[in-house]
């Protein structure tokens, strides 16, 4: 029987595809809007929220979603108004969320296997329900990016300028944070609370090295996200090593290769090209 005929492997392959697309696309916002600090806080908050759910007996994914949005609601406006530097926000919220996560884990009765699964992730134990949730989130993320591409593009470029031409840039920003929370929540069980942010950041950071077109950056980031998931899954299967960690290490290797071979490192040479050849639409 081929490995692909097992349902757990089919679920894992679909999870890698859908999670890669959703995480990679969300990562473009994180990279271009310079908000990795918000993403880090949200992903660790999701982990803490999921553990609270496990401890109190409600659906961990609801806890993850609520906590990640709460973190965004606290950190975003504070950083936005310049009342806290991003570094301070990360320091305070990140450590608080990790502290809460380990507190919930500590007071949780019985075995900690569920908690550890959320910590490290386990793509091979995903159910068809997990895949459907991720599919819904991926369709929502891609659909909203396509529908509101021009508003998103303007908000990413400069939020104040987008506001000044009559684009609802604040609503777009909160929409992006909502999608980030949903993506983190839906991918949490597969990649794990500690590692999920790498799968958001690395594919987009790699795509950022390779193109001056925002549309291509979204496509490359989603592609690298899927590639990280599938290659990580393959290595995990071949070498019998943890899947979540392997996926994240693979995404980091893709980033390193993109950074080394980035055409953006040769700005002078790029500028010397004829304009028709250099341009992107």
């Amino acid at each position: 029987m081929s490995i692909f005929e097992y349902q757990f492997m089919q679920n894992a392959i679909l999870t890698a595809l859908l999670g890669g697309v959703a995480c990679g696309s969300i990562g473009v916002f994180v990279v271009l809007m310079h908000m990795p600090f918000i993403g880090v806080c949200m992903s660790h908050a999701a982990f803490a929220g999921a553990l609270l759910g496990l401890w109190l007996g409600f659906n961990p994914l609801i806890g993850a979603f609520v906590f990640s949005l709460l973190a965004a609601a606290v950190v975003g406006p504070l950083a936005d108004r310049g009342e806290l530097s991003p570094e301070t926000s990360v320091g305070v919220i990140f450590s608080l969320m990790l502290g809460l996560a380990f507190l919930f884990m500590g007071v949780m009765p019985g075995t900690k296997s569920g908690a550890l699964e959320l910590l490290w992730g386990s793509i091979l134990t995903n159910t068809r329900g997990d895949v459907i949730l991720l599919a819904l989130v991926a369709v929502l993320v891609v659909g909203l990016i396509v529908a509101f591409y021009k508003e998103i593009q303007a908000t990413i470029f400069h939020r104040g300028m987008a506001l000044s031409v009559g684009i609802p840039a604040t609503a777009i920003l909160y929409g992006i944070l909502f999608l980030t929370g949903a993506t983190i929540t839906a991918s949490l069980r597969s990649v794990g609370g500690i590692l999920i942010f790498s799968l958001i950041l690395n594919p987009a950071a790699a795509a950022y090295q390779l193109t001056y077109s925002m549309k291509r950056m979204f496509l490359f980031a989603a592609g690298f996200g899927v590639l990280s998931g599938w290659m990580g899954l393959l290595f995990s299967y071949l070498f019998n090593i943890p899947s979540g960690a392997t996926i994240v290490v693979t995404s980091s290797v893709i980033f390193l290769l993109a950074a080394v071979f980035s055409p953006k490192r040769r700005v002078k040479g790029w500028q010397a090209k004829p304009l028709a050849e250099a341009g992107h639409d």
Partner: peptide, 12 residues
């Protein structure tokens, strides 16, 4: 490294 060209920015 912002992935937008001059024409796209004016279109905003």
């Amino acid at each position: 490294r912002m992935p937008m060209n001059v024409r796209e920015v004016v279109m905003i």
